[in-house]
Design a protein around this nucleic acid. Structure first.
Lengths: 272, 272
DNA sequence: CGAAGCATTGACTCATCTCAACTTCAGTGG
DNA sequence: CCACTGAAGTTGAGATGAGTCAATGCTTCG
């Protein structure tokens, strides 16, 4: 199976970001009401910008607030004593960097920008408030953090058990699906402003080897890249090289039971 | 720094499991009241057993309830199409296998036993109820899931950037600290009933290579193993080989601010 | 237009894997 | 109580995927 062309239903003239990517993403899990959407739009209102190649939050620092990434790409990473770096996750529009970190005394990793980035800072109070008053949104946010955790587990599988080709293919597929889930794909094409060094730091490979794998894929007609736009020319083949199965992203939506459960809660909390 | 000899304060005659390991673990984060402890003890009352080498929850299945692991060791893993297996985490006493998975339609990985295991099944309602009525416990459970996530990230760092010796050393240190946090260490000694194949499936190494690394450690006087009891003879050296830093486990407790915040909530919800 | 960063390529090295035998150990049944 | 069995641990020798080093080309942007 191939990611749905999520963009087909949003042909606003002002481009793919016209719709709040967080709403887009959460809608994959539960259908959101008009008022849910309103609240999420309000949350996303405040704006702060960060330049390219800058830390939004640094390891050891006290986490200050949650950020909703509205535009650009960031990464969750850790620098190592020997000068190396491991990128754990890429954050794309619609992602929250760190839903929950405000529980902790200090960051155990850093979050840095890969491109210039627009974020909406969200206070602890806003999130906490939501939990009490809007169970459906809370559930969706919760789901989103489960999805993130599942992605971490999948990266472990990749690093532990796949060879270089498999790892690269896997990452490309994952990024395609994630971009599709927030409406940032055009068919099987999306913007990938990552250097080969960054890919290597994610995949546990050297940039040189990433280059060779990518070259191989290009020669086999599996991908093409130009102007930082990546086209997956043969998604099925790539998914099979990767042993990729999108089910860990849990994009199939919540079970009917869960939806009912949270709708009930919603009705109850709406009254008093 | 070396893990505190957590066992020193629990010299009950009936052994290290006399105290609820979940309470032990959560206390690392916030001080729990007598009534908190009572509630957690009640939660841990129900009992179910699983034999060795059995799935508690299988990939693709519908998650049924949360389990508190009371005794034994289990693993979170995924089987791969090529016959391989990747172990993502070990579950030790005091761990909850899957705090939240009941939000999802199906498991994206399996949970299997490595030794015979005693668990307490906990219903969705119990957990949900806690959230409303006992903010301090909820916070602690939440913290525990953040800790788990941090461990996943650290495994990514290990697999991506450390060599075989570093990976093995890292895992041993992590396990020592985790066991210490639930009172299951005796100095720098703890029970490790894992085969070298299981270690390899966790670390992305072949059992043969795990064996050689372990042999090296033994010859260098860093560890010794007998009867499945592992002694870390030189924790500092191992930690430096691993580049291990325990801060990602966030065992230092919550910030004063957070503690105050949840204590306040607690007072409020206790009254009506 | 020049510098800096990134991508590409080749030649050589090395950590880890593979394959395969052999040993040790714990558990079982005669 | 010991022989038998199967799983786990050890060890050696050779193969290989990915790393290292180093040179060269290509962009991009000030």
């Amino acid at each position: 199976m191939v990611p749905a062309a999520q963009n087909s239903d949003s042909h606003q003239a002002d481009g793919p970001l016209s719709s709040n990517p967080l709403i887009r993403k959460l809608s994959n899990f539960v259908p959101l009401s008009v008022s849910d959407r309103q609240i999420l739009d309000d949350l996303a209102q405040p704006e702060e910008q960060f330049a390219i190649d800058v830390d939004i939050a640094a390891e050891g620092a006290v986490p200050r607030s949650v950020f909703l990434l509205k535009e650009g790409i960031a990464m969750r990473y850790r620098d190592l004593p020997d000068g190396g770096r491991q990128i754990m996750t890429f954050l794309i529009p619609g992602d929250l960097c760190d839903m929950h970190v405000f529980l902790l005394k200090e960051m155990d990793h850093s979050i840095g920008t890969i491109t210039p980035v627009r974020v909406a800072p969200i206070s602890r109070e806003s999130i906490m408030g939501l939990f009490g008053t809007h169970p459906r949104i809370s559930a969706a946010l919760w789901w989103s953090s489960l999805q993130e955790e599942a992605m971490l587990r999948e990266r472990i599988v990749s690093l532990g058990r796949r060879d270089a080709r498999g790892r690269v293919a896997y990452l490309l597929c994952e990024l395609l699906w994630r971009h599709a889930a927030v409406g940032l794909t055009f068919g099987d094409v999306f913007k990938l402003p990552l250097t080969q060094t960054e890919l290597g730091d994610t995949l546990g490979l050297t940039p040189v080897h990433v280059n060779r794998v990518l070259k191989g894929f290009r020669e086999q007609g599996l991908i093409s890249i130009s102007q930082k736009m990546l086209s997956l020319l043969n998604v099925d083949r790539l998914q099979s090289i990767a042993g990729f199965n999108s089910s860990y992203l849990h994009l199939g939506g919540a079970s009917a039971e869960i939806v009912r459960y949270f709708n009930a809660l919603e009705g109850r909390s709406a009254k008093p």
